[in-house]
């Protein structure tokens, strides 16, 4: 059975990707909200925000983009929960589970689909950012590092999304969990420097994962040394990934496999 694990996962990934292709609105709406935030902050609030020295020399869109990319991922993964929920409710997961296929094929197919769909959304958002004046001197390696950080973050949050996808009792519940994730960047260094925040809020902002990830991506885009923030970001992302992965798989095995 394990010999087929890869081909089973690919067959099911092809199926989910077809779902995405046939409802391209899921990619467009994923990209639309972050783009709206970007327009709002660049043209409405941006002029009033002082990003200070060094952190984001240049236009505000340069400062803003890393946080916007994380918001893109947070809104994109809610579709994974949604699609998985519908599969569980419709009985098709049960059909797959009663077949001689690799036990991990069903969840991994949804996760890989999420990664592909989110990468497409991220490319669209970065494209719009360039139109708004985003510029970077980052080389190929720095871009690869940014891509790596974003894909790892997508993987981690997608495994988080698998949990409500398996356990929710309604479609709304399956996708609502992502709202707090979308707002986490607002309580981080994504839009304003944390130094401008009042005490407790500043403490939270400086100790939550989004700030470390945002600072890492910002440093890569501005060709600065990533420093210790990179390791903090990596530790957070890997920790979220591991906890969500183990939890999601325990639930899946108990309920469906």
């Amino acid at each position: 059975m394990t010999s087929h694990a890869v081909s089973d996962t690919l067959a099911l990934t092809g199926r989910s990707l077809r779902h995405v292709l046939r409802s391209p609105d899921t990619i467009i709406t994923t990209a639309l909200m972050p783009i709206a935030f970007m327009l709002l902050f660049v043209y409405v609030f941006g002029g009033a925000i002082d990003t200070g020295q060094g952190a984001g020399a240049g236009s505000y869109v340069n400062y803003l983009l890393p946080g916007i990319l994380l918001i893109t991922i947070a809104s994109g993964i809610s579709y994974t929960a949604y699609r998985l929920f519908l599969d569980v409710q419709g009985g098709i997961v049960e059909r797959f589970s009663s077949m001689p296929i690799g036990r991990s094929a069903v969840p991994w197919a949804h996760v890989l689909t999420s990664v592909v769909a989110n990468v497409v959304s991220l490319v669209i958002v970065v494209g719009v950012a360039f139109l708004l004046g985003f510029r970077t001197g980052a080389g190929v390696l720095a871009w690869l590092a940014v891509a790596g950080v974003l894909v790892l973050f997508t993987l981690a949050l997608t495994w988080v999304a698998v949990i409500p996808g398996l356990t929710a009792s309604s479609v709304d519940g399956a996708s609502a969990f992502s709202y707090p994730l979308i707002f986490l960047p607002f309580l981080s260094s994504a839009f304003v420097p944390t130094e401008s925040m009042p005490g407790p809020l500043r403490w939270f902002a400086e100790h939550q994962p989004v700030t470390a990830i945002v600072d890492t991506i910002r440093a890569l885009f501005t060709e600065q040394a990533v420093g210790s923030q990179f390791w903090v970001a990596l530790a957070w992302t890997v920790a979220i990934l591991l906890v969500a992965f183990v939890t999601a798989n325990l639930i899946y095995r108990r309920r469906l496999a």
Binding site: R15, R18, S23, G90, G91, I92, R95, P100, I101
Partner: peptide
């Protein structure tokens, strides 16, 4: 409950199951 994939065509549903049965 009919566990079919509504977004796929009938042929794609059957092809998918054939692939999953190797």
């Amino acid at each position: 409950f009919a566990a079919v994939d509504e977004i796929l065509t009938g042929r794609e549903n059957l092809t998918l199951i054939s692939r999953l049965r190797h």
